[in-house]
């Protein structure tokens, strides 16, 4: 499969948040400020790539040989949670600067559905290791893009005058829906 097409699909056509509707909670919860949304986005790219690689390896060498594919979900949850914990400890010791930048987002990501979703999507679509890495990074970038767009919109919405019924969660969900509609324009541009 063409890697460029894979990147395009992961970032725009099949954006993890806006088309696949995974990771809605950080998307709405952390998109109030541009700064936090970028931080969360970078942390997701980092963890997603790492966990996708590890789960891919474990799936190939542990689950498939014993035809235990039906245990993927539970095994992947275990792996991701353990891995994120481990990375958090290592980062704290070896790279305090990076830890401070990603630190508060890492525990949030442990149980994030995007991470598990991408890990499962990778093995389900039978990506090889290169495709897995590329797809995970691109999906993370797509997540960051969605977060940043949303944060930009919400920062402006804060200042806008509107009916009190629309304020807050309501207008956020409406704008998220419109943003998702906009991304539907990319559908069908690339056939996989």
């Amino acid at each position: 499969m063409n890697l460029l097409a894979l990147i395009f699909v992961a970032i725009l056509a099949n954006n993890i948040v806006l088309s696949q509707f995974l990771g809605i909670c950080p998307y709405l919860g952390l998109s109030r400020k541009l700064e936090t949304s970028v931080g969360m986005g970078l942390a997701v790219v980092f963890v997603m790539t790492m966990s996708a690689i590890v789960t891919w390896i474990i799936d190939l060498f542990l689950l498939q040989p014993f035809s235990l594919e039906y245990l993927r979900t539970i095994a992947f949850i275990l792996i991701i949670a353990g891995l994120v914990q481990f990375v958090e400890m290592v980062l704290k010791k070896t790279n305090p600067a990076l830890f401070r930048a990603l630190g508060i987002y890492l525990p949030l990501i442990t149980t994030n559905c995007t991470i598990l979703g991408v890990a499962i999507l990778n093995v389900q679509s039978q990506h090889n290791i290169v495709e897995t890495i590329v797809y995970s990074i691109a999906t993370g970038v797509g997540f960051t893009l969605a977060m940043v767009l949303m944060a930009g919109i919400r920062e402006r919405l804060e200042l806008a005058t509107m009916s009190s019924y629309l304020k807050g969660a309501a207008v956020t969900l409406v704008s998220a829906g419109i943003l998702s509609l906009a991304f539907m324009g990319f559908k069908g541009m690339v056939a996989l």
């Binding site: 689950l63 014993f66 792996i79 949670a81 353990g82 481990f86 010791k93």
Partner: peptide
């Protein structure tokens, strides 16, 4: 097999995390 693999994974991560908690304290 399924119990062994999931249990084994759990045990593996438990050991790794316990070690890391001390090594990277």
């Amino acid at each position: 097999m399924s119990m062994a693999i999931i249990g084994g994974l759990g045990l593996f991560f438990a050991i790794v995390l316990a070690y890391a908690a001390q090594r990277f304290a």
